[in-house]
């Protein structure tokens, strides 16, 4: 099934749980970009009982580390499996979906189902094209981490496929090999 989300769905995302595994969509809206180093810092803050420098409630997290060329943000997904150990932290802080590449652990699938927070994949090795979908960006925090800082990006027609839906179904178009 193909579907296009033309409205800016960021504020409510009421229909996120309705998306089905394998759905293709072109997303307009806001993504919060972070990866290994930033999430590790967030985890340290959590363990110390300190507040996060970013508000994650109602946000979609995009696992990525961008670079900048020709005045563009060049961006694409990184391996989501490495982020599985931080997924509970994100979801309990209000994150409503994640975007990355590749498979996730069984533990992550269980969290995705429990929090009804679907996992999307974006095309990998495709950063020059994805840069044309980025409308604007800003660094939110951890600027010293360079490509691993936390960014807020505004995207238009950003291509996504639902890899694990809110019911915990995993994308497996031909059956057989389990993606998890």
């Amino acid at each position: 099934m193909n579907m296009t989300c033309t409205e800016n769905v960021t504020p409510h995302f009421a229909h996120l749980p309705k998306l089905k595994v394998g759905d293709y969509l072109e997303f307009d809206g806001e993504l919060i970009v972070m990866r290994d180093a930033a999430q590790n810092r967030l985890l340290e803050l959590k363990l110390k009982g300190q507040d996060f420098p970013v508000n994650l409630r109602g946000k979609i997290v995009f696992y990525a580390g961008p670079t900048f060329a020709n005045g563009r943000m060049i961006i694409g997904p990184t391996t989501s499996k490495r982020m599985d150990k931080y997924l509970h932290m994100l979801l309990e802080n209000g994150v409503i979906a994640t975007v990355g590449k590749g498979t996730r652990s069984e533990h992550a699938r269980e969290l995705i189902r429990k929090f009804k927070a679907p996992y999307f994949v974006a095309p990998s090795g495709c950063a020059a094209y994805l840069s044309t979908c980025v409308v604007s960006w800003e660094v939110l925090t951890f600027e010293d981490l360079g490509p691993e800082a936390i960014y807020r990006v505004e995207v238009k027609k950003f291509p996504l496929v639902v890899y694990i839906d809110a019911s915990g179904n995993v994308y497996r178009p031909f059956g057989g090999a389990d993606g998890i």
């Binding site: 670079t67 563009r72 060049i74 694409g76 095309p123 090795g125 094209y129 044309t132």
Partner: peptide
């Protein structure tokens, strides 16, 4: 899935001398 994006990526990258992947 993503056939159009992946193919366009080749031409955007070459045309504008942008990296094919953000992980260089």
């Amino acid at each position: 899935p993503f056939w159009r994006e992946l193919n366009e990526n080749f031409s955007v990258a070459e045309g504008e001398k942008l990296p094919l992947c953000q992980d260089t």
